[in-house]
Design a protein around this nucleic acid. Structure first.
Length: 212
DNA sequence: ATATCGATTATCT
DNA sequence: GATAATCGATATG
């Protein structure tokens, strides 16, 4: 049996939180909690790694292609999920920011599991034999999406400021300690800007040198 | 420890 | 037709 989740209230952030520039939102999202609630399960993970995508003038951003069927959520109101499919295998989750009409988003790159580890392990096809195995649940954008059952069909465009969507971002009072800012990972265009925020020394941060 | 590669498909040129 | 905001496996130092 999975251990029950006992945690302070997980109330959603308000829309104004997201109605700011992606740099600010990327920084402020560190330490917040991504929550998935369905009839079957309650999943929660603390955000430990984010990246800012700046909108139409950022060559690395999907919004650089303009407002298309794929990217329309990015041009909509803030606080909504932009989910895209990549490399024929993986989904990734962004939150839209800025005011409606202006693109800009934050990619959620890694979480530290808070509750629902057993369910996440099942979704990820991972066996939790040692404590260190939990790193592979949510360390990386594709991994966390799989752990939370996030797909484009299910979640693209959903309101991350509402519990009714079943997927939201909460503040449980935790405040991130030391923070590091680095270049973004896995991109070829505009790769020289420091637009990635991580909680220093957190084992669940993705990429090399994050611990094992 | 780093490097390289295959998977597999939506989207854009 | 090429590429991509990734991951897991395999090879090599």
């Amino acid at each position: 049996m999975a251990t029950p989740c006992t945690h302070p209230r997980l109330l959603p952030l308000d829309r104004e939180f997201f109605a700011r520039g992606p740099l600010r939102v990327a920084r402020e999202l560190l330490g917040k909690v991504l929550v998935r609630q369905s009839e079957a399960e309650l999943l929660a993970g603390r955000i430990v790694e984010t990246e800012a995508y700046l909108g139409e003038n950022d060559p690395a951003a999907h919004a650089a292609a303009g407002n298309t069927a794929r990217t329309s959520v990015l041009f909509g109101p803030p606080g909504h999920a932009y989910v895209y499919f990549i490399y024929g295998n993986h989904y990734c989750l962004n939150v839209s920011c800025e005011r409606e009409g202006k693109a800009g988003s934050v990619l959620i790159r890694a979480l530290e599991p808070i509750c629902g580890r057993e369910e996440m392990a099942k979704a990820r096809h991972v066996r939790l034999l040692f404590p260190s195995d939990s790193v592979r649940l949510t360390s990386g954008p594709g991994r966390l999406a799989e752990a939370f059952g996030i797909t484009r069909a299910r979640d693209n465009g959903c309101d991350l400021t509402s519990q009714k969507s079943g997927l939201w971002i909460a503040d449980d009072g935790f405040r991130a300690g030391r923070i590091r800012i680095t270049a973004r990972i896995g991109i070829t265009k505009a790769a020289d800007h420091r637009l990635r925020w991580v909680i220093a020394d957190n084992l669940f941060v993705s990429g090399p040198r994050a611990g094992r």
